[in-house]
Amino acid sequence: MMIILMLLLQFLMGVYGENFIQDLKITWGNDRGKILNDGQLLTLTLDNYSGSGFESSKEYHFGKIDMQIKLVPGNSAGTVTAYYLSSKGDTHDEIDYEFLGNLTGQPYTVHTNVYAEGKGEREQQFHLWFDPTVEFHTYSILWNPQTIIFSIDEIPIREFKNRESIGIPFPKTHAMRLYSSIWNADQWATQGGRIKTDWSQAPFRASYRNFKADACVRDAGRTSCSPRTLTWMTKKLDDLNVNRLKWVRENFMIYNYCTDTKRFPQGLPKECRVRE
């Protein structure tokens, strides 16, 4: 009876992933992906033969996903460390972070994108206000039926609101798994592909810890949410975080598809023309 009560209490407290052995699985790269320290640390490695990657054991359908990541240090030019939620299929949904490496001393580029029903092309890019290779930092995705908020150390860097009322698809229907991978993309990742991967610096390694999924879980066609995960269903930016988001956009945004008139000569996407 005590064991049953303890398991029930854990469920009611939400889905918290504190052990990578239980919550994630290495899916490619052979031994280049490792789960260490009794499941408390995970590393992904790229060398001149292969990268590596993992995915979550569960599918999530709304909630808040947190992961602490320490990115590839030194000369990481040409490398990409991807961290994202995604469903499968031609009409998949996806919520992306991609960390584009750079030469030593130059800032990482944080590339974000949102796909709905298989269509993306909603890229925004940022530089960071800290060195993401020295310490672990928390990268979060808040996803509910009203909005998607990308945050770093609880500071929002991007919001993508639900605009279905004016005909803009929003990732709402499909449950998604969490994925991460490290791979070589030197044809485009660093300065448009002008800077290539220096394989003498390999292996390149990203590290992960403190995964937390305070999220609804999809299993066998049914979605279950604990009382705590339901609190995320109506979350939105408060006044403090609206100002934080404005600070990030004014000081660290380096690309916004909503201002790229050359890319969209027939007119910017509809969501870019909506007044807040």
Rank of each mutant, 00 (worst) to 15 (best):
K212A: 09
F160G: 10
D260L: 11
P132K: 01
K64Q: 15
A189V: 01
F11C: 09
K246D: 02
V248E: 11
G192Y: 07
Q106K: 05
I182Y: 08
G29R: 14
T234R: 12
S180L: 03
G167D: 09
S140A: 14
E18Y: 11
L128R: 00
D153S: 12
P156K: 00
P107N: 01
G39P: 04
M233W: 13
L85Y: 12
Q106E: 03
G120Y: 07
I35K: 00
S180H: 03
N113P: 13
Q10D: 13
D96K: 00
T229E: 06
F20E: 13
R194S: 15
W143Y: 10
N210G: 06
M6D: 14
T223L: 01
D96F: 02
T231Q: 11
T45K: 13
N37M: 06
L12W: 04
F54L: 15
Y115R: 01
S180A: 02
Y255V: 00
A185L: 03
I166R: 04
Q266T: 13
P269E: 12
S57Q: 15
S87P: 11
N256G: 07
E121A: 04
L128P: 12
S56D: 12
S151A: 15
S86H: 07
E55F: 12
K119I: 12
E98N: 08
I149Q: 00
G167L: 05
Q266W: 15
L12V: 03
T91K: 07
T27P: 00
V217H: 04
E276K: 02
W143M: 11
H61Q: 15
G78T: 01
R32L: 07
F160L: 06
Q124S: 03
I168A: 15
E59I: 15
A206Q: 05
F130D: 09
G167P: 02
T45H: 08
N241C: 02
I3D: 11
N37A: 09
N37I: 10
L8P: 00
T173M: 06
E117C: 08
Q10Y: 04
G193L: 07
H127G: 00
L44P: 01
P265V: 14
S56G: 10
I166T: 15
R122G: 08
L100N: 03
M13Y: 11
S180N: 02
R205K: 13
I166P: 12
K246T: 00
D219M: 09
L237N: 08
K236E: 02
K172F: 14
V72P: 07
K196C: 08
G105H: 03
I155C: 14
T27I: 14
D31Q: 13
I65C: 03
Q40D: 11
P73A: 06
P132M: 00
Y208D: 10
N75F: 02
V242C: 12
G33M: 11
F252W: 08
P227A: 01
D38P: 09
M253I: 00
I155D: 14
Y208S: 07
A82D: 04
I157A: 10
D238V: 09
V248D: 09
R205Q: 15
Y49A: 14
T43D: 13
Y84I: 09
S56W: 15
L9K: 05
K64C: 13
A206I: 07
T138D: 04
V72M: 10
K246N: 02
M253S: 01
V110S: 05
R194W: 03
L41D: 13
V248T: 11
N241I: 00
E135C: 08
N210C: 05
T229N: 02
K58H: 14
D23P: 05
L100K: 03
Y139F: 12
F99M: 03
M13V: 05
